[in-house]
Design a protein around this nucleic acid. Structure first.
Lengths: 336, 336
DNA sequence: TTGTAGGCGTTATCAA
DNA sequence: TTGATAACGCCTACAA
């Protein structure tokens, strides 16, 4: 509520003086008497600077916009938490951008509501509109997430992992266990690109491949259960399931037990992403661990640096790739 | 990048005219020629109004600050998603406030960085500082969450459920199944108030009560596993576990299977909150469903109304209570 | 039907 | 060592 002007009057100085003292602007040495009078008046009036007014003149909102796909997916909680932590360490705040809402990242940045846009995506590629955003607004945009087959978005700093790599690791794991075929749990056909990658890798390894899809989109756990039920009716019954997501895998396991079978004795199931629940699933889920946290940290750090130095140069220099990793737990075993 | 002034020059009118036309300010009828010239210039220059400048003069940021405890707890994803949805339906954005960060809700509101503060808490009560915030800033604060024993925060619009109610429902369920005693999985002692409530209710029902605690705080799944292991060594072994949280319950089930026992054949386990994973746990988790979404929706709607009408009256009128509900699934059964 | 002037709270520029 | 003054982009009396 209190403004710099009020402090100035209270302390009998000018607003300029108050601003400089309160902000410790370098290059100005004020008389101790003035300093203390200002400081005291500020405390007395319970002064809090207005970030809005500041943002207007400094052209800096101190806001990081975080765009994620699904806020209730534990997998996306990672970038959210990470980014929030890094932001508040710098005294910045975060704003959430979700896909359904009318407010998209591009609009947010164009209007100058955020200094940095962090895109934590479920897939990279097809990002032309991103570059537009980058050019149109002078803000900083960085991207973290998995790469499928599309080329990386150019002109945007990116950290990523190769979805193909994780898929291969999982497929090889199943092959090594002795499985001759995999059934991939794709879900809604919007997830087709990933499935195609899996198919390619399976063929390279010499694993028979089959995919289960769903016409209607649904929350992942439900998708998993639904596909699990479909699988239970397939003859011959698949020996190994590779789910698009840990949640899909857990949903599938639910359906398998519902049908009176067991994992991995009757059928092996593996997931993707290694969310915390994977470790504590019953049975503990074999899955592919994915470096989402590292990716976010990497690009966001670059973005913060760029923001501080004011040079956007470092932003496009490199696109760093982080490795994925097989986490072998108990939901996979040799076929019966 | 483009400003109203630039449009004004481009269209050969004054800034005032541009502002009024672009905002459809009622009470002004402009010549069609002027209108179209302004509109065209705006499109031509790709004009986007600056929310920062607007916020400064309108004293309205169009931001809702959402304070939650743990971003990666699926339980807290509910208020987050709900609030974000309601916000963006009104063209507002959200900012996240997490406990660890230096940025707290009070500071945010005092500085006028948000119009509404939504506190989606893990517990109600002890909210004196809240009222300070309310009085100090002219912003709107509302609260949603569980109530333990403390009185509701007064002077703040609240929607809540009674933690005691859910606890009783769970305890009664176990008693009806024939259990003579419960072991409550409390976790870190910061969760003691809820445990005390459970103890009281157990005594009222005539159920022997015992609590398992932990000295070190840990993520809930790990807490659950740790306490599950402790329980496995207790003699006589408990017949029924009541976990503070679904995640704790799932962690405990993990430890139970690790020890070679089964749920519910050897031991019953129930959780609290009914997160999506509860339904798909193995076995599906009996739990208490909690109306977090309804609570958030209720108070946030009140807050939005208050913001629109400008009267804070409606805000303190009522504190609505929503019921909790037992969800009986398969992790509980009569004792062996 | 349109425009002018002033202000929202802060910082930057220039002068003293 | 300190102050005027003018922005930042928008909105709202008040005037014409």
């Amino acid at each position: 509520m209190a403004t710099i002007q009020q402090i100035a009057e209270e302390a009998g100085v000018s607003g300029t003086t108050v601003s400089r003292i309160l902000n410790d602007v370098p290059g100005y040495t004020y008389a101790e008497r003035t300093r203390s009078r200002v400081l005291e008046a500020a405390r007395w009036l319970d002064y809090h600077p207005s970030p809005v007014a500041r943002a207007l003149v400094r052209r800096r909102t101190n806001v990081i916009a975080i765009a994620i796909r699904e806020p209730d997916d534990p997998h996306y909680a990672i970038p959210l938490r990470r980014a929030h932590k890094m932001a508040s360490a710098k005294g910045m705040t975060t704003t959430l951008v979700l896909p359904d809402s009318g407010m998209d990242l591009q609009a947010l940045l164009q209007r100058g509501q955020a200094d940095i846009g962090l895109l934590a995506r479920g897939s990279l590629g097809n990002c032309e509109s991103l570059e537009d955003a980058l050019v149109a607004s002078h803000q900083i945009v960085v991207v973290a997430g998995p790469r499928y087959t599309y080329p990386l978005p150019s002109g945007v700093r990116t950290a990523y992992w190769e979805e193909r790599e994780g898929l291969r690791q999982g497929l090889e794991h199943l092959a090594e266990l002795g499985h001759a075929s995999v059934t991939y749990l794709q879900g809604h056909h919007s997830n087709r690109p990933k499935m195609e990658l899996a198919r390619q890798e399976a063929e390279r390894i010499g694993l028979a491949f089959e995919a289960v899809g769903l016409n209607e989109p649904a929350p992942r756990l439900w998708e998993g259960a639904e596909m699990g039920r479909l699988v239970m009716e397939m003859r011959p019954r698949p020996t190994a399931l590779f789910a698009r997501t840990d949640e899909v895998a857990i949903g599938a396991i639910y359906a398998i037990y519902e049908a009176g079978l067991r994992v991995p004795e009757d059928i092996s199931v593996m997931g993707h992403f290694d969310i915390p629940f994977a470790e504590f699933a019953n049975p503990p889920l074999t899955t592919i661990s994915t470096p989402f946290a590292e990716c976010v940290e990497d690009v966001l750090q670059a973005a913060l640096d760029a923001l501080e130095t004011g040079s956007r140069e470092a932003l496009v220099l490199e696109n760093i790739r982080f490795p994925t990793r097989l986490v072998h737990r108990r939901s996979t075993a040799p076929p019966a």
